Amino acid sequence: MEQKNKDIMEMLLALATEEQLVVVAKNAAKGAVIGFLCAGLGMAIGGSAGCVAGAAAGTVLAVAMSNDIKSLSDVLMELAPGTKEVLCNVMKKLLKDVFWQCVDTLIERVLGDGHLKKLIVKLLESFFEETMKMKVKTAE
């Protein structure tokens, strides 16, 4: 990986940490299957009352499993090399007017510029939503 890309990835890690950004992986299909299975199992065991109890239990389980949350920093480090390359190329377009000689300068400029920071977060949100069907948000 070229040095500019390494700098950009390090800056993104610093930004993700400072802003406490997380990624929510959407697993709605898995949650729905679990909900239906629990309702069916409840119906088989306890009739209509079992179906209601199974559906309730399945719903709770489905909601708990439908959103896997990881820190954005962890996700960035785990990205495949090709995906990192695409992300860095997108970031380079945004940072085309930002000059830096070392990664510390880049991090300082990005973290010190509220407008640029917001633009980068928006770009991250868009990138992860479009390419990986993941939602980037602030940890709560």
Rank of each mutant, 00 (worst) to 15 (best):
E19K: 15
L124S: 04
S71K: 10
A56C: 11
K70P: 11
I8W: 09
C38T: 05
F99W: 00
D74W: 00
T105W: 04
K122I: 05
L72K: 06
M134P: 09
A62C: 03
G58D: 01
M132F: 10
E108H: 05
D113S: 02
G47C: 06
M11R: 06
V33A: 14
M134Q: 10
G46E: 09
A32R: 05
L123P: 14
L95Q: 14
E19V: 09
A53H: 04
E10H: 02
M91N: 02
L87K: 03
E129W: 02
L116A: 04
K137D: 14
E129R: 13
K122W: 07
T105S: 03
T59K: 04
T131H: 15
P81M: 09
D74G: 00
G46T: 06
S71D: 12
M91E: 13
L72H: 07
L21T: 09
K117P: 11
V136T: 09
D104G: 07
E85F: 12
I107F: 13
A57T: 13
V121D: 06
K93S: 14
A57W: 07
D113M: 08
A14R: 00
K30D: 00
N67R: 07
N89C: 12
G46V: 00
A16V: 13
C102G: 02
K133F: 14
D7A: 01
G35L: 14
V60W: 09
S48P: 01
E129Q: 12
G58C: 10
C88A: 14
T59R: 10
I107Y: 14
E125I: 13
A55N: 03
L72F: 11
M77D: 05
K70C: 15
L123G: 15
V103K: 15
V60T: 15
L12E: 04
K118A: 15
F36D: 07
L119D: 14
H115P: 08
M9F: 09
A39L: 11
K92M: 02
E129I: 04
G35T: 12
D74V: 01
S66N: 10
E85L: 10
L21N: 12
K117V: 07
L124P: 12
D104R: 05
G31S: 06
I69C: 10
L116C: 06
N27R: 13
E125G: 11
K135N: 08
L124H: 04
V75Y: 08
V103I: 07
D97M: 01
V110A: 03
S48M: 09
C102P: 00
C38P: 13
N89H: 09
A44G: 14
N67H: 14
L15H: 07
K118Y: 10
V121Y: 12
T17W: 05
E129P: 08
A56T: 11
V86H: 12
G54A: 13
L116Q: 10
F128S: 04
I120E: 11
F99S: 13
D97K: 02
T83W: 00
K135S: 10
M65Y: 07
E10A: 12
L79P: 00
I45M: 15
A44N: 08
L72R: 13
V90H: 08
S71Q: 11
K30Q: 02
M91F: 08
H115G: 08
D68R: 10
M77V: 07
L37G: 06
E85C: 03
G46N: 01
T17C: 01
K70G: 13
G82E: 09
C102E: 14
G50R: 01
L79C: 12
N27P: 02
G40A: 15
V63H: 15
D104C: 03
A14T: 09
